[in-house]
Design a protein around this nucleic acid. Structure first.
Lengths: 245, 245
DNA sequence: GCAAAAGTGTTGTCCTTACACCCATGC
DNA sequence: GCATGGGTGTAAGGACAACACTTTTGC
């Protein structure tokens, strides 16, 4: 390794006052927006409100809020989930930051998009301010701000992630049939899957617990109900699996 | 679908003045930090400077800067790359936002981490302020701020991405031997690969162009030199490839 | 008994892995 | 001629994809 003459950092050039340095930076408003996925009627849905900005009257908007002073980003996202759905202990993951200068009509606002997956049945919505409701992803066209773009990015993120990790179980009831599970995968990936191969796949993973219960109130032969074995699934990262460009 | 009584958004409640709304949000300083990967001497390296904060004297720091007013996040990252390396048209991807309240000693600063891959040979570093230099990832222990955590996240991101997309070519010279390519993958993934299978794999992908040139100045049988066929690689997203938990 | 979905195995193909020998060049 | 890495093929095993019939339940 050849030595290159460098301009070193001399002690007298060091910045002593970090607070003053940070004070000199431009500041921007920072928000968190949650893309909350649910699954109902064999459709992937998102929890949305109607925008309360006159400019976006009638348009759907993500659940978001500004990040408070001294609040972790993740904590802000969990707070929004808790405030809106009453749930904690839900799946949550940061997806991407959006910061186009013109993405908000009120001036520049940076937002960090979070994805959350939750089971619609597990709780009735307690609050219905701003027409909070589950909206089918397929029917979702226009949205306020750049929220449609954020939803698209999160949906692609979900499609990818669900093939690598068993996220889907967060969207289902504790006990579910294999048909429900397959419907979920088909809805998220937008494809149809072979039933036998699908069942074989999950059987071979050995991550489903047979509850010895059956579906109730179905107008056909009832299927077995399973639980996901969260304990057994202690993440095993994949190694060299080839390059699937 | 059952109808639920909702608190609707009434026209008189709509917010007319978006600017005023945004003005009421708390504001935070926003920076971009670039994790710039390079490959040299069969080692994965990162382009770093020495921190100029007295608190972190002698410690390595990522290349970062605050995001300017009306500057896109991506643009800020490209600007930093350009200022520090003189290069544009390099690979760049947003990885994650870091926003712990205490991550910066001067007060809360949000940073968006970007990953960049570039070929060390393609340019000599023009500027050596703050001892700008390539540092081997393996030897990197302590860093200023939470930059080690950021590096770790970006490295994991790289390991994953390089198995799904042909990113590695950004780290190599335009013309390279298969051995160099394999060394790169082995260095990034931290594993050894079977030479025959590795070559078969890339041969079957049919994305390498034989330049009909050979290595020069090697003390053994010279290998063929290839170029990556960027044109042919118009991304083909993978479909249902099973669930590899 | 009919509709609707549950449940179940086999086969062919492809991909991945493991593995060993000769070749070209510099010294 | 020796050291170093270049270059090549094959066989076995595992994963995936395609495919049809019988069973159970509600009505």
């Amino acid at each position: 390794m050849k030595k290159i003459p460098v301009k070193a950092v001399h002690p007298e050039q060091l910045i002593q006052d970090a607070v003053q340095l940070v004070r000199s930076y431009p500041k921007v408003p920072l928000t968190v927006d949650c893309v909350i996925f649910g699954f109902e009627e064999n459709k992937l849905k998102i929890l949305l409100i109607k925008s309360d900005l006159a400019l976006y009257k009638g348009k759907y908007s993500l659940l978001g809020d500004f990040v408070r002073d001294n609040e972790e980003l993740d904590a802000a996202a969990y707070r929004i989930l808790k405030e809106r759905t009453g749930m904690d202990n839900v799946f949550l993951d940061q997806v991407k930051a959006f910061g186009s200068p013109a993405r908000h009509p009120g001036g520049r606002v940076i937002t960090i998009a979070y994805c959350s997956l939750l089971n619609i049945q597990h709780h009735a919505l307690k609050i219905h301010d701003n027409e909070l409701n589950w909206v089918s992803l397929a029917s979702l066209k226009e949205m306020a701000f750049d929220h449609k773009e954020i939803v698209d990015v999160c949906y692609q993120w979900l499609q990818k992630r669900i093939q690598e990790h068993p996220l889907g179980f967060n969207l289902l009831p504790e006990k579910f049939s294999l048909r429900e599970l397959q419907n979920l995968y088909e809805a998220i990936l937008g494809i149809t899957l072979d039933r036998r191969n699908f069942r074989k796949k999950f059987a071979s993973m050995d991550l489903l617990i047979d509850t010895n219960e059956m579906e109730q109130d179905v107008s056909h032969r009832p299927g077995k109900l399973y639980k996901f074995n969260f304990e057994k699934y202690e993440k095993s990262k994949r190694k060299w699996v080839g390059i699937d460009f």
